Simulated assay, not measured.
Amino acid sequence: MHILTNLLLWLHFIGVGMGVGGGIALSQVGPRLVAAPADQRGQWWPLETFFSRIGAAGLAILLTTGPLMVWLKFGGPGGFTGWFWVKMALVATAAVAVGLHEWAGARFRRGDVGATPLMFIAGRLAGAAIVLAMLSAVFAFN
């Protein structure tokens, strides 16, 4: 069991790296995509799609490995402090923000320029929530 929980923790760290890395890349590609003339956006969409998928896959890994570790290593969330629940609220916030970002991005891709502010707000909210969730995790598990 110890090897399994260590592998899950390793995968969890991989998920953090993918989520944060994808988000940082999107923070650079997104503004360039939005600022590009409509006829030149085709150059930026493959990068936006690639980095979005990396970030979303990282979040999926986190949402899978996290609960598995909670139950396999700790027997459930019963003994955790309030920091754990703060972390969970921040993870939920990040998941909703990523969903909003994806939805707004799909609207933008269909030509709805009015979705741009929501893309930026949701992306920044997701990034802040993930960083704060990691800080909360330090207090929850240390």
Rank of each mutant, 00 (worst) to 15 (best):
P117G: 09
L68H: 05
A126L: 01
T65M: 06
A122P: 07
W85C: 05
T93W: 07
G66K: 00
L118V: 12
F120K: 00
W83F: 11
G123C: 00
W71A: 12
A106K: 14
G99F: 03
V91W: 02
G105F: 02
T65L: 01
F80A: 08
V70W: 00
L118H: 05
A106H: 11
T64N: 01
T93M: 14
L63I: 02
A115M: 00
G123W: 02
L62M: 05
L72W: 10
G79E: 03
R124P: 00
V96G: 06
G66D: 02
A92K: 04
R107S: 13
T81F: 01
V86E: 15
M69S: 11
F80K: 13
R124E: 08
V98Y: 10
W85Y: 15
A106P: 04
G75L: 01
D112N: 12
P67I: 06
T64L: 14
W71T: 10
F120R: 01
W103V: 03
I121H: 13
A94M: 15
F108T: 08
M119G: 05
W85Q: 12
V113D: 15
V86T: 12
A94Y: 05
M88H: 01
W103G: 06
M69V: 05
V113T: 14
A95W: 06
W103F: 10
G114A: 15
G123R: 02
A104P: 13
G99V: 01
L68R: 01
G105A: 12
A95L: 11
L118W: 08
K87Y: 06
F108H: 11
A115H: 01
A94W: 08
I61F: 00
D112Y: 07
M69T: 04
G111N: 11
R109K: 14
M88R: 09
G76C: 07
W83Y: 14
K73V: 02
L125D: 13
V91E: 09
V86W: 06
A104L: 03
G105M: 04
A92N: 02
K73W: 07
V91C: 03
F120Q: 06
F84Q: 15
L72I: 03
A94G: 09
V113Y: 11
A95H: 05
P67S: 11
A95N: 06
L125C: 04
K73A: 14
W83V: 05
L90C: 12
G75V: 00
A104K: 02
G123M: 00
L68C: 07
V96I: 11
P67V: 09
L90N: 14
A92T: 08
A95M: 09
L118S: 09
M119K: 08
M88C: 08
V91G: 07
P117C: 04
A122E: 15
A104E: 14
H101K: 11
P67Y: 04
T93N: 07
V96E: 14
L90F: 05
A89H: 05
G76Q: 11
F80V: 02
G76F: 00
P67T: 06
L72Q: 15
D112L: 05
G79M: 01
M69I: 10
W85A: 12
P77Y: 09
V98C: 09
V70M: 03
A115V: 04
L72E: 15
G76D: 14
F80W: 08
G79P: 05
F84N: 14
G99H: 09
R109N: 03
P117F: 02
G99D: 15
